[in-house]
Amino acid sequence: CKETGYSGDTWCKDCGKKILSGQTIAKTENHSWDAGKVTTKATCTEEGEKTFTCSICGDEKTEKVSATGHQHTEIRNKKEATCKETGYSGDTWCKDCGKKILSGQAIAKTEDHSWNQGEITKEPTCKEEGEKTFTCSICGNTKTEKVSTTDHQHMEIRNQKNPTCKEAGYSGDTYCADCGVKISSGKTIAKTKNHNWDGGVITTEPTCTERGEKTFTCTICGNTNTKKVNATGHSYGAYKVVKEPTNKRKGLKSKTCSVCGKIVYEAIPKTNFSPTDSSETNPDQNPQTSQKTTRKIKLNRRKLTLKKGKSFRLKVTLAPADSQDKITYKTSNKKIATVSKTGKIKAKKKGKVKITVISGKKKAVCTVKVK
């Protein structure tokens, strides 16, 4: 681009003779431009200029540089809309040149209030809804919402009745303790099988050898239940000598049951000494061997009331306790009550009867009333 060129001469390489002359070549129009340098800086709205220099000939050329446009913008005067005031979208400004690029628009008031937590202005009940009032913290407007009924929160049981052996029970009705409404009915509870027995009464006295009977009565329904009472066993006193022993024969001693009068005898071994008086040589005349008779009869009951079919045992005490007289029993009417050889009275039918106890020449009477 700075000088013309030459195509060159043609020569023979063998003989060294110039065969043909060359031609001049015109300067080229293609410069070798450098990267260029900004000589006028472009702005947001105006073009700039860039200058390029040929590294061969030093020629220069210029080119326009496009305006940058508003590359860095910001929003100013923006305002949020509320339920009380309109808002504004804000103006657009160029941060580089400070020029207002675009105006904003008004934003209508919002319908979204900023409600508080609300306050109960009408309490709900079991039957009726309540009411809660909310207030906007911005504009002061209020709104109300229904509060659901509480339902029956507090219950109580009424008319409850425990079952007994006599009457059925009742589980009780369920009522609302707040409004008094009956919510549900209870159920009948079957009678209990467990009776409330009293301490019991001896209806048949046990004897030395036979069991008695104790009757228990339910204090609620009046039912009765009987249980056997163990025989008492004999109640013997101390042994008493009936016949003194000698060196020739055995003696005899006895003990008597104070309840039924049974006598148990036991031999006494012979003695090792000789008799010294006529009473020992003639034992049949010994005063201790003479039979003791009953002087008095004592009964445990003089009057007695029995239900039909029930029994009672008379207890007989003799004086002296070692009386050898037998004890016998008689009834004035066997159809009303009977009496055994051991004093067991059994009621047969309604009426009155006398039970007579005889020992030796003594008598004692027990009057029995049969219901």
Rank of each mutant, 00 (worst) to 15 (best):
E3H: 12
G8V: 02
D9H: 01
W11N: 03
G16A: 11
G22L: 00
Q23V: 13
D34H: 08
K41P: 06
E49H: 07
T51L: 02
C54I: 05
I56A: 05
E60Q: 14
E60K: 15
V65R: 02
S66A: 15
T68M: 14
G69C: 06
H70Q: 02
Q71L: 15
A81Y: 11
C83M: 14
G90N: 04
T92H: 00
C94D: 04
G98H: 07
G98S: 13
G104K: 04
S114M: 09
E123V: 11
C136A: 11
C136F: 13
C139T: 00
V147C: 11
T149E: 15
D151I: 08
T164K: 03
A168N: 05
D173S: 10
D178Y: 07
K187L: 14
T188I: 08
V201F: 10
T203V: 15
T207H: 02
T217A: 04
T219N: 08
N225L: 07
N247G: 00
R249I: 11
T256A: 12
K270F: 02
F273H: 14
D277C: 00
E280Q: 01
N286F: 00
S290N: 11
T294N: 07
I297F: 08
I297N: 02
L306A: 03
K330H: 04
S332M: 01
K346N: 11
G351Y: 09
V353H: 00
K354W: 04
V357T: 13
G360C: 01
K371D: 06
K371M: 10
